[in-house]
């Protein structure tokens, strides 16, 4: 019951946020240098008739808010118009490109789940030990480095020198796609893994030194219970609380990674559109990515609610 209220509120908030984003995105047409007609025609010189037909087609003679309402009405039906560069439907472009980007993000999440918490737990449980020092030094290096630079090093070592993985493209068929996406997903995951490892390590180190672990050991609680219910559960909290941030980073970080590995995803679509000032595509991609990010945040908050009884009480009381 109360969960429903919470969920309802969050969904309303997402709709409102999307409205604001859509308004700002729509306004780009008028904020960009150059007249709207010229922007929508593209870089080639245009005749008066062409300009008039564009004005007609996009309703540019109507008042600003009416134009926005029309545009929004179409956008709700996933109609963002056609690409200026090649005349394709923006929505079909988006659908075509989303698959790659979403698989890349999911692959990165799998890597994150497999690596981040165990590494942080090992470092934190023996804080100050050799493993901790190595892990801490490496994560400090990776957490701060630009993704395209670490990605290039991966690409050079595993793609050029060792030739274990392909250095560009997407591939076809499940295994081939996984093979192609390994280096990009690793690049995407590395900075985030380092961040989560650092957070997990800090929490694990605190729990290991906590009174309740000492008390648990003193009263004879089984080591397995201490490791799982005390340490593992407590140390997964940073991963859960940062999930929104992490997913957001995965969805926006693909822009750089797709460029580095020449992968035809949403990110490269957006970059190309921005470089060629292909406004309808930019608008569609921006709104789609924003929607993904907002949805990811909702998922993250819901999982936080599921694992932390304190948050549950604070939110649902």
């Amino acid at each position: 019951m109360k969960i429903a209220v919470w969920l309802g509120r969050r969904l309303i908030a997402i709709v409102l946020q999307l409205l604001i984003i859509s308004f700002l995105t729509f306004s780009l047409l008028f904020l960009m240098p150059g007249s709207p007609e010229q922007i929508l025609i593209g870089p080639n010189p245009a005749t008066a008739e062409q300009l008039e037909s564009i004005r007609e087609r996009y309703g540019l003679n109507e008042p600003f808010l009416a134009q926005y309402a029309d545009w929004l009405g179409a956008a709700v039906h996933l109609d963002f118009g056609t690409s200026i560069a090649n005349g394709e439907e923006v929505s079909s472009l988006l659908i075509e490109r989303s698959g790659v980007t979403v698989s890349l993000a999911i692959y990165a999440i799998v890597l994150l789940l497999l690596l981040a918490v165990p590494l942080g737990l090992v470092a934190g449980a023996r804080a100050g030990g050799t493993a901790d020092r190595v892990i801490s030094a490496v994560t400090t290096m990776l957490v701060s480095a630009p993704a395209f630079a670490t990605g290039l090093l991966l690409l050079y070592v595993f793609g050029v020198v060792l030739r274990w993985f392909p250095i560009f493209g997407f591939g076809s068929g499940f295994t081939d796609v996984v093979w192609h996406l390994t280096l990009p997903a690793a690049t995407l995951a590395i900075a985030v893994i380092a961040l989560i490892v650092r957070q997990t390590r800090a929490v694990a180190a605190t729990i290991v030194r906590s009174d309740y672990v000492l008390f648990g050991r003193a009263r004879g609680v089984a080591p397995w219970t201490i490791w799982t219910r005390y340490l593992l559960r407590g140390s997964s909290m940073p991963l859960v609380t940062s999930m929104g941030l992490v997913l957001g980073f995965f969805l926006t970080g693909t822009v750089v990674v797709e460029r580095l590995f020449s992968i035809p995803g949403l990110g490269s679509l957006l970059i190309n559109a921005v470089s060629t000032k292909d406004l309808p595509v930019v608008q569609g991609a921006t709104i789609l990515v924003s929607f993904f990010v907002l949805l990811a945040n909702l998922l993250a908050d819901a999982s936080h609610l599921a694992v932390d009884p304190r948050v549950r009480k604070a939110v649902l009381a």
Binding site: L31, P33, V255, I271, V274, S275, L279, T286
Partner: peptide, 15 residues
Amino acid sequence: LPSILVIIVIAGLFG
């Protein structure tokens, strides 16, 4: 805001 997106859009479109 996803800052890298914002910068890309602004820097790209506004030149």
